[in-house]
């Protein structure tokens, strides 16, 4: 699926690349100084973070290059930071992709009634800043599939006569333009087909946002507006852990849930059963049934992005 898998990271037999070694040595040297400095000043400094953590944050490596120990350390630091920042005990994990699984989504647009239950379930599940929504439901009018004519801000009672509803979120493209765009490889496709972001590696240039044809990427313009009382403590490194400001984030098919076999929050919240989520590689999955037995379409298929997000109708 992706040649940039992060699986070698866990493989102790894999030889590190020479540049890797040099880089690691460089970072270690910096890290030693940092820790030495941190030891002398372990009291909170620097915006509620200890000096040691601040240095470790600064020199944190790319997720795909960390070894198991580094990951463990980083996860612990993330939990510490959340505690300091929000006073909440979170559990941050980095469950790897399940082998033989590629996630896909299908939405029945004759069932979607525009309630936006999925939108808000997603916001709460994924610790989104309260000014951000990963899912956009567009109110379309009969006789048109022109997104420019859709209403993104509809309110009141739904469904409205003469309208149908088109929910959109990250399409988890199999040929993602955002991944290509990123100058620092801070975003990549995991083996289960989900495009993820390393929030600690992103430099915030927002080129991926320009590249995404589905407006699926969202930027943390300021510190996320996240009420501490509403934090979901079940988090994932590449998923819903609290994000810093100045980085891009996106829908990740609820990695913290789906990699443990659970349904994504939007599927769970949908009252109409319009959302069908599953493993594209499993011929007996519901999504495969839909794809093989229904006329389906994908948005902007002409761009060659190969979204793993389909729409279908009841017959």
């Amino acid at each position: 699926m992706s040649d940039k898998s992060n699986d070698q990271r866990r493989d102790p037999g894999a030889d590190p690349q020479p540049t890797d070694l040099a880089r690691r040595r460089f970072l270690q040297r910096l890290g030693v100084t940092a820790l030495a400095a941190g030891a002398t000043a372990s009291a909170p400094a620097w915006g509620g973070s200890t000096l040691g953590d601040a240095f470790a944050d600064f020199f944190q490596d790319h997720y795909q290059r960390m070894d198991a120990d580094e990951v463990k350390e980083t996860l612990a630091r993330i939990e510490r930071k959340a505690k300091r920042r929000y006073g909440v005990d979170i559990d941050c994990k980095d469950t790897p992709a399940i082998p033989g699984v590629v996630f896909g989504y299908a939405i029945n647009i004759s069932k979607c009634r525009g309630y936006r239950d999925c939108v808000h379930a997603c916001v709460e599940e994924n610790n989104l800043s309260r000014d951000t929504q990963y899912i956009r439901v567009v109110e379309m009018h009969h006789g048109s599939l022109n997104l420019h004519e859709g209403d993104h801000y509809y309110q009141g009672t739904v469904p409205e006569p003469g309208k149908y509803y088109l929910p959109m979120q990250c399409m988890q493209c199999d040929n993602p333009p955002c991944v290509k765009a990123c100058p620092v490889e801070a975003t990549w496709m995991e083996q289960d087909g989900v495009v993820v972001v390393d929030y600690d590696w992103c430099i915030g240039c927002r080129y991926c946002m320009a590249a995404c044809p589905y407006q699926a990427r969202h930027f943390n313009w300021g510190d996320p507006d996240l009420p501490p009382g509403e934090i979901n403590p079940d988090t994932h490194f590449l998923g819903n852990r609290p994000r810093p400001k100045g980085v891009v984030e996106k829908c990740h098919f609820c990695l913290q849930r789906t990699r443990e076999g659970r349904m994504p929050a939007c599927q769970e919240a949908c009252p109409t059963g319009a959302r069908i989520f599953g493993n594209l590689l499993d011929p007996n999955s519901e999504i495969r049934y839909v794809l093989e037995n229904r006329a389906v379409f994908r948005l902007k298929e002409e761009l060659g992005t190969e979204p793993k997000f389909w729409y279908f109708r009841d017959v």
Binding site: R113, Y115, R116, Q133, Y153, Y154, Q155, V158, W221, D225
Partner: peptide, 16 residues
């Protein structure tokens, strides 16, 4: 049959 219902809040404006 399903009855119409009030939709939850739509997209929020960027903070600030």
């Amino acid at each position: 049959g399903w009855l119409p219902r009030k939709a939850l809040a739509g997209p929020a404006m960027r903070m600030g």
